[in-house]
Structures are given as C-alpha cells and as structure tokens.
C-alpha cells in the first residue's frame, strides 16, 4: 500500500516538473518534438534510478558513518557525472541501438538538476504516506520513489511535447513565439495538476 501511495504521489501530486521545478532546462529544450521528448524521458528515467540507488548507498554506508554528510553535494555530483559517463560507454558496447536512441541525451543529463535533486531529496527528507509516521525512505522505497518520479517526469514531458507540436502550427503573436507561449502552456498544465494535491 505504501509503495502504491509513493508512486501516485511522485507521479501526480508532487510531479517533479510541474510542482517541484526540477529538470526544467531540458524540459523546455527538448520538448519541441515528441520523439526527442520520449528519448530524453527514457534516458532520465534510467539515470535517475541508477543515480539514486548509488548515492543512497554511498550516503548510508560511507558519508553518514564517517560524519561527512556535508560532502553530500560535492560527492553526489561527482558520482552522477562518473555514472553518466559509464552508462554511455557501456551502452555503446552492449546495445548500440539503445545508444542510438538515448546516447545524445546522456551528456546533458549530468547537469539535469532532477537527478541531483532526487538523490539529495531521498537522503535528507522525511516522508509520510497514508498516515504512517514520518520516516526516511529505505532503499526499496527510495528506488520506487526514483522510478515513479522519473515516470512523472516522462509523463509531463510527453504530454507537453504533444501540446507543443500542435502549438508550432498555431498563429501566436510575435512576442509570444517560442518559449513564452510554451511557458504559459506549462503554467496551465501545472494548474491542472494542482487538482491532484491533497489526495495522498
């Protein structure tokens, strides 16, 4: 039950893009076309999950016992950067077709704040679902949270890319062209997502 609530909460209620404002830059950058949006979502999903698990373990078994939690930011970003590089190399070797689909997005992901954001959130914040007592997430819950959050990222991204493809053909005033109208569209989407608040 708790896992279910984590998933609903991470995808809809606290949508990482529309409610937490993480990972906005690539969101605006690659959402022009549905196909690139899908590719980016896939890559983000993969990296967020992997990075969260690795940084969770790093924090739990190295930084906390040694009293070095103030090094979280610096060590997490280095781990994420190294991880992205590794994923790129491995993917190139074992699955060229997947690399074709996701490869070009991977270098961009190091500086996607959604990855660092989720990694820091799961090790610093208390969570409470369905009236349970507030607690830190355990490894299993953190993993589910990471997967669900990135699914929420994908959902918002793909919905938005669909809207933007239609927008491209619309006749909007000159000053609104491009990003301004896109931002206003996201604003209205975020308004719709507000309807989910309070259900978990």
């Amino acid at each position: 039950m708790e896992y279910f609530l984590i998933i609903i909460s991470a995808i809809f209620v606290n949508n990482i893009l529309l409610a937490q404002f993480l990972g906005i830059c690539p969101f605006l950058g690659v959402s022009g076309k549905l196909s690139t949006a899908t590719g980016m979502s896939g890559a983000v999903c993969f990296v967020i999950t992997l990075a969260t698990v690795v940084t969770y373990l790093l924090n739990q078994y190295l930084l906390v016992p040694l009293g070095l939690t103030f090094l979280q930011t610096i060590s997490f970003i280095l781990v994420i950067a190294a991880l992205v590089q590794m994923v790129e190399i491995i993917l190139k070797k074992i699955s060229p077709s997947l690399y074709q689909a996701l490869g070009i997005f991977l270098p961009l992901i190091t500086t996607n704040c959604a990855v660092l954001g989720v990694a820091i959130t799961v090790v610093t914040k208390d969570f409470s679902f369905g009236g349970a007592a507030p607690h830190m997430l355990n490894l299993g819950q953190a993993t589910v949270y990471a997967v669900a959050t990135s699914l929420g990222y994908g959902l918002a991204m793909i919905l938005f890319a669909g809207l933007r493809e239609h927008l491209a053909g619309c006749d909007v005033p000159k000053a609104f062209k491009g990003l301004p109208i896109a931002l206003i569209t996201v604003g209205i989407m975020a308004l719709a997502f507000l309807g989910f608040s309070g259900i978990v």
């Binding site: 404002f21 000159k174 000053a175 990003l179 301004p180 604003g187």
Partner: peptide, 25 residues
C-alpha cells in the same frame, strides 16, 4: 493564490518574457 503556487511561476515568467521580447524588438 495561484501566483504563489507552481502554475503562477510559469505564467509570470512567460508573460515577463513577452514584455522583454517586446522591449528588445
């Protein structure tokens, strides 16, 4: 209230960008 919440952020930034574009144009 919507303006202090998430949607307001996107809307305000969008409209301010429009004004900035107008000014630059």
């Amino acid at each position: 209230l919507a303006f202090v919440m998430a949607p307001g952020a996107f809307l305000v930034l969008g409209f301010l960008m429009v004004l900035f574009n107008k000014y630059l144009a």
